[in-house]
């Protein structure tokens, strides 16, 4: 995989983990045409915790899917970790995701037939990197930080919702991806588990220097973020820096 130097944007003062230019996405055709994104320009600086907020149907999940290379935009371009995603075929995109992107979803994060440890190792295993020594050390560190040491042999069905999300976070962090996307990570959790998961995400930004982008509709959750972007009807309506 050759690293492309992206020609378009003027040299940014801050390193960018991901950026989008003129992003459009529509679904259906003719009568049923729905515009989920109507031209989004966005820069996500590295090493920060960004929250994308907005009501249901505002297009925030679609934006995340496009940024993460899970879905192809109708128009516009996305650059992640310095590489333009457009034009990549499915296999290249798949490999790119497993090398550079981590995910934490709202629900259905873990494979039911694998143990917690196996779930955490899965992406690196798919990439054939699970025998790297440095990763083994990082694994031990992350598992300990997330308090999962005792839970590694358990299957998802034997874990609480909060524990399941912690396993998902560990999985997302293990390969030290350029960017971690979290889609409503606290959607199914009670308030104390929510607080715990959000703290862990913020901790990973502060202490491990990760870039985390979280999609949420909970104002409470957004307070943990460094930057907040508000979306409505497929457009960015507000950008603010949370408490510095």
């Amino acid at each position: 995989m050759t690293s492309l130097t992206s020609p378009q944007p003027p040299a940014p003062t801050v390193a960018l983990a991901a950026s989008a230019r003129g992003l459009m996405k529509s679904f259906g055709r003719d009568d049923t045409l729905v515009h989920a994104l109507r031209g989004v320009d966005l820069d996500l600086p590295a090493g920060r915790f960004t929250a994308i907020m907005g009501p249901s149907g505002s297009g925030k999940s679609t934006l995340m899917h496009c940024l993460a290379g899970l879905d192809q935009p109708t128009a516009g371009g996305v650059t992640v970790a310095g590489q333009a995603l457009e034009g990549m075929d499915d296999d290249t995109l798949t490999r790119f995701r497993r090398d550079h992107v981590g995910f934490v979803f709202q629900a259905f994060n873990l494979l039911p037939m694998l143990s917690a440890a196996q779930n955490i190792w899965l992406p690196t295993e798919l990439a054939g990197r699970d025998r790297e020594r440095s990763l083994r050390e990082r694994f031990d560190g992350i598992v300990e930080t997330l308090g999962l040491t005792e839970r590694l042999t358990h299957r998802p069905a034997e874990l609480s919702g909060g524990q399941q999300q912690r396993v998902a976070i560990a999985r997302a962090l293990l390969s030290a991806p350029a960017i971690v996307f979290a889609d409503e990570p606290t959607g199914n959790l009670d308030s104390s588990s929510s607080a715990e998961v959000l703290s862990l995400l913020r901790q990973s930004v502060r202490e491990l220097g990760q870039t985390v982008v979280m999609v949420t509709h909970e104002t409470e959750a957004a307070t943990y973020a460094d930057d907040v972007i508000v979306l409505a009807d497929g457009r960015i309506t507000e950008r603010r820096q949370a408490a510095a």
Partner: peptide, 12 residues
Amino acid sequence: EHALLRALGLTR
């Protein structure tokens, strides 16, 4: 599950 696996890096 398959969608998750695809997201996490399993090729077609």
